[in-house]
Amino acid sequence: MLRIGLTGGMGAGKSTVALALADLGAVIIDSDLIAREVVAPGTEGLAALVEVFGADILAADGSLDRPALAAKVFGDDAARAKLNSITHPLVGKRTAELIAAAPPESIVVQDIPLLVENGLAPLMNLVLVVDVDIETRIHRLVEFRGVDEADARARIAAQATDEQRRAVADVLLDNSGAPGEVEAEVHRLWTERLVPFEQNLRTGTSARRGAIRIVPPDPDWPAEAQRLIARLWIACGTTASRIDHIGSTAVPGLPAEDVLDLQITVADLAAADSLRDALGAAGFPCRPDITQDDPKPTSQDPAGIDTALWSKRFHQSADPGRLANVHVRVAGSPGQRYTLLIRDWLSADTDARAEYLAVKRAGEAAAAGLTGVAATSAYQKVEEPWFATAYPRALAWQTG
C-alpha cells in the first residue's frame, strides 16, 4: 500500500490537511493519538512508566499526568532516552498493527508531528509537509488556541526548522492562503498524484512516460535525488555498496529531461535480483524487459559485443509526480564504471557538455510527436552512438 508521511510545524494546519485527506478516502494514522493510547490507564506502557518514574506521574483518576512526567525528563537526556525506550516501541507496534489492518489498496497517511526529528522520512513512499511561515503560525497559536506567545515561540524553536522540513518534503502544501485553498490543493494532489501512485504501486507499474522534453537545469534535482536515495538505502540495506545520482540531472548546469537517474551498486546479479520486491515496495517496480545496457568496446571486450558484461536490473518510479530510473549494476562492471565516469567527465569538461547537449537536442527532435517506449527508443537511437565515441575520450580524460 502507499504510505504517506504528513508533517508540519505547530500551527501550520496539519490537522486541516489530514481531515481533507480522510474525506477523500485516506486511512489516517495519527501518531499523537497512538502515543496517548499506549499509555492509557491499564496499559503496559503506563505501568512501565510508573515503574521507572514513580507513581507521582499519575493523576488522581489514574491517568498519566503529562506535565508531571515532562517535569521529570525535562533537561535530563538519560531520563528522556528511558522514556523513549518505553514508548517508541509501543507506538511502533501499534502503528504496524493499524497499517496491517488497512485494505491493500489503501492510501495510508501517517500524521507524524516529529517525522523529521525522528528521521522517519525515508520510510515513506512520499512526504507531505504543510508549510506556513513562523510568524503566521505563532499568530494562529495565540489567536485561536490561546497559547502564550512566549510559549508558542519556545515550542516552535524546539521543533525542526522550516528548512529541515522542506528538505524532506516531496510535496509542500502552502496553508497560508484563504480558507479552502489548501483543501483544493489536497484534492488536486489526491487525484493527479496519490491515486495513480497507489494504483501503480499495487500493480507493479511504472509511472507513465510522456513526450521527451529537454528542460533547463533544475537546482532542486540534487536534493530530490538524495530524497530518493535515502528511500533506496532503506530498501537495499547492506545489499548495496553504494547508491549514486547519475545521468544528465547529476551534471551541474546541463539541460536534461526531468527524469532522475540513480544507480545502485551490488556484488552480483543475484544480489540485484534479491532487491526486486523491496524496491517495488519502496515505489520502484522492476522493468523485467530491460536487463542490460548497450555494449561498448572495453579492454575486456574490444569488439564491444559481449552483452553479458553489460547486464543490469532496471526499475522505474511508480510516482507520476517524480519520474526516476533506477539502474542496479554489479560493482566493477563496465556499465557501473562507465556511468560514473561519463557523469564526472561531463561535469568537468565544458566542451564535452556542450557537445552532449547538442546530441540531446537532436534526440529530442527525433522523438517529437512520440510518447512512452517509442519516444525513448527514438531518442536513444540518436544518443547511444555518441556514447560509444565518448567512452574512450572519457577514459583518456580520467587517466590524464
Rank of each mutant, 00 (worst) to 15 (best):
R329N: 06
D61C: 12
A26E: 14
S299E: 03
A358Q: 07
G75Y: 07
S311A: 14
P196Y: 01
E185M: 08
A59K: 08
A240H: 10
A154I: 13
Q316F: 13
D268K: 13
S377P: 00
V171N: 00
H315Q: 09
I342C: 13
P104D: 08
I99E: 05
D289L: 00
D77Q: 14
R393W: 05
P216C: 06
A368H: 01
T371R: 05
Q292C: 09
P252A: 08
A157D: 05
G45V: 08
L69W: 12
I34S: 03
D111A: 11
Q336D: 08
G400Y: 15
I156A: 05
A367E: 00
R155V: 15
L269F: 14
S63C: 06
E383R: 01
G5F: 07
P67D: 09
A178Q: 01
M10E: 15
P41M: 04
P113E: 04
Q226K: 14
I246K: 01
P219V: 09
L232M: 07
A152G: 08
A388K: 09
I28S: 04
P320W: 06
D220C: 02
G332V: 07
Q292G: 04
A70S: 09
P222R: 14
I4C: 00
V195G: 00
R213W: 11
E163C: 04
G204C: 12
T87P: 08
N125S: 11
H139V: 14
P104H: 05
S311E: 05
A358E: 15
V168W: 01
I134K: 12
I156V: 11
A47V: 14
V382Y: 00
R276T: 15
I138A: 09
L340G: 11
N125L: 07
T203S: 09
Q110F: 10
L189D: 15
R137A: 02
L33R: 04
L172Y: 04
D170A: 04
A271R: 13
L6W: 02
D293R: 01
L2E: 05
V382C: 03
T307G: 12
A374S: 10
A169Y: 11
D351V: 10
M10W: 11
L189P: 12
D65C: 12
A230R: 13
E198R: 11
D220H: 08
A225S: 13
S274F: 15
S85H: 03
A167V: 10
A348R: 15
R193A: 07
S317E: 09
D268W: 15
I156M: 04
L123S: 14
L24H: 02
Q164P: 14
I246R: 00
F74C: 14
L6S: 06
I29F: 04
Y338H: 13
D349S: 15
I34W: 09
L172V: 04
D273C: 12
I4K: 01
G400N: 10
R193K: 02
A374M: 00
